[in-house]
């Protein structure tokens, strides 16, 4: 094979690769669009009126997740299964957002931490790398951390909305999460940076709980009783 032929050959490879990436990019755009729609649905829980029908909002979000599953189903056909990490950067960002949205829905529904398995089920991915398109553990953790920061905001806004029990429950939940994260040895990477942010979320929620307690508004019975 001459040098020219070899380069033509490789050019073939590279073009194919570019096409795969183009295909992936398109599906990912759809995913991002759906993710923004789910976010809009869930954002309304922060508003005074939003606290009333959280269950309804969760249902709506659940419906939109079925669209996510369709996109993911499409995405997995675009590239060979064992090359997940070759194209990881393309969907990493949106998958973290989706993991956040899934864990936020589950928290709003049950006030508990979604498992990696559940997120995978909600998004329509596999849990195990060997089985195909999966959710990387670091992306799952990133999603959980985004939720933590959303919960600190929720704690603040629930006080505004007159719900004085929720902050305490959030506080317990987030403390548990913090204990979990303390077990991990993170590298100096984006996840580590996000985890540093968790400390501020914990601090903020603690401040809300303090504000409530010095005013006698932190009613113990509500705290945790509803799980």
């Amino acid at each position: 094979m001459s040098v020219t032929e070899m380069f033509s050959h490789i050019q073939g490879f590279l073009s194919a690769d570019q096409e795969v990436r183009e295909d992936i990019r398109k599906v990912v755009q759809g995913l991002e669009q759906t993710a923004r729609e789910i976010l809009t649905v869930l954002q309304s829980v922060h508003q005074p009126t939003g606290f009333k029908d959280i269950p309804n909002k969760c249902l709506k979000a659940r419906e939109l997740f079925s669209t996510v599953q369709i996109h993911i189903g499409e995405l997995r056909t675009k590239f060979p299964v064992e090359q997940y990490y070759r194209f990881h950067e393309h969907w990493r960002f949106v998958l973290q957002r989706l993991a956040f949205l899934a864990s936020f829905v589950v928290y709003l529904e049950t006030e508990s931490l979604v498992t990696r398995e559940e997120v995978a089920k909600i998004l329509g991915t596999e849990v195990n790398r060997e089985k195909g398109f999966h959710l990387d553990v670091e992306d799952y953790l990133a999603g959980v951390l985004i939720m933590a920061s959303e919960l600190s905001r929720l704690a603040v806004n629930s006080v505004t909305a007159g719900d004085y029990g929720r902050p305490l429950r959030i506080s317990n939940f987030i403390n548990e999460l913090d204990s979990g994260f303390r077990l991990l040895n993170l590298k100096n990477d984006p996840l580590r940076k996000r985890y540093d942010g968790l400390k501020y979320d914990v601090k903020k929620i603690e401040e809300v709980v303090y504000d409530l307690s010095i005013r006698g508004l932190a009613k113990e019975p509500e705290a945790g009783g509803d799980k």
Binding site: L168, S171, S213, I214, R215, G216, L217
Partner: peptide, 17 residues
């Protein structure tokens, strides 16, 4: 800040938390 008009038993609830 321990606002007088709303003051509760700060210390007891505090320790509970």
């Amino acid at each position: 800040e321990i606002p007088k008009h709303m003051l509760a038993d700060v210390f007891s609830s505090r320790t509970a938390v």
